[in-house]
Design a protein around this nucleic acid. Sequence first.
RNA 1: GCGGUCGUAGCUCAGCUGGUAGAGCGCCAGGUUGUGGUCUUGGAUGUCGCGGGUUCGAGCCCCGUCGAUCGCCCCA
Length: 412
Amino acid sequence: MSSKMQPVRGTRDLIGADARRHHAVAETARRTAGLYGFEEWFTPIFEDTAVFARGLGDTSDVVSKEMYSFEDRGGDSITLRPEGTAGVCRALVSNGLTQTLPQKVFYAGPMFRYERPQKGRYRQFHQIGIEVLGAAEPLADAEVIACGWQILNALGVAEGVVLEINTLGDAASRDAYRAALIEHFSAHQDKLSHDSKVRLEKNPQRILDSKDEGDRAIVATAPTIDAYLTPEAASFFEAVQGYLTLFGVPFRRNPRIVRGLDYYSHTAFEFVTDRLGSQGTVMGGGRYNGLVEEMGGPATPSVGWAAGMERLSLLMEAVGNDPRPPRPVAVIPQGEGAETAALSLVQKLRQAGITAEMAYRGNLKRRMERANRQNAHAALFVDAAGAIEMKNLDSGDQYALSEDAAIAALGG
RNA sequence: GCGGUCGUAGCUCAGCUGGUAGAGCGCCAGGUUGUGGUCUUGGAUGUCGCGGGUUCGAGCCCCGUCGAUCGCCCCA
């Protein structure tokens, strides 16, 4: 047992039902995002460390202690991407696409974070995400959110998932609010939890998010951002909510939502569920202005979200959404010398676009049992002369027919 | 990085106050040169996560370690 190779901590294999769910998440999201005009980009899985260090801001744990960074043989500092947005912004600049805005991007793939693994959280995990790059209009925020909502619905997991939105305001609002929060929490500093005392130094808004009982009482009396919003920031947030209502996307205001990464401003949102324990955020995002500039491009107002594929798969499993592979047709040679005729038939079926299988070995009983296990919907018995009988494995009906008739009947 | 719980067959799990392993499912083969999902008979599979300690003797007790899991932190 000890010599058995195991995947490294925080990684895992996706096989069978897990693999099918994972694939369904990516495929459903890709297709749905396509309906909204998003096109998929494939950016590298690793980047120059500066792409993330600069992009995400150094107050986040993601940068300060969770990155998989290493020096390559040429002496460059390389980092396995911990999230998708920074790489997409870098690619926008690298490819000169700042001249052709807006760009609507979909991505899906592995991300890496050195964290303590938990259910729905791995060191190699997978995200899907979309970004609208180069649109300052609140309509873009609403469109991005609506697309996310449609994906959750298409996956059948929208039940029990709630959209919570908030605004972080523009720079002026944010600074004023931050000052107010520091004042409020400093006044109660002695009653704050240890974690929140640290937050007060690093990122006071994070205290709003605290799960500590004692903190919550202090948070309850904390000011909300509304009084500190500039008129522009307030009307922007109003507009986003108006479009969401127009699009029929239900939401609820949660003034305690903050974002983990530094680049966010204005709209912040999370799709949350209570079915996943402490990994309740299923899709999260918001507006970010300034990230593209960090990559050396022009100011490019943008908005997007990312979702954890593992968490979406977990939700699919919880609601019993179990994608099945297509039901094959089982081709079964009958009698001596029938193998050649059967093989030629199975190949013709496949070329006609029909999912067909023929077992490598086994007697008739074994082949039938195997057909059953594969959930085959029909069996085609072929004899040495090439004569075919088709049996419907659901109804049990069986009759002889020609090869062409069989292909036609099976939808080829 | 911190705290709680748990590691026995491919899977789900049982195993008494310590006496060197069991069930169900699954798998393989037979009953059936022949038409499946039913039934029936038989069979294979474990250094009891790993390492050390206590003991005449450890799956069970102790220590360590690795892994999973739950919560914190953080985040999707």
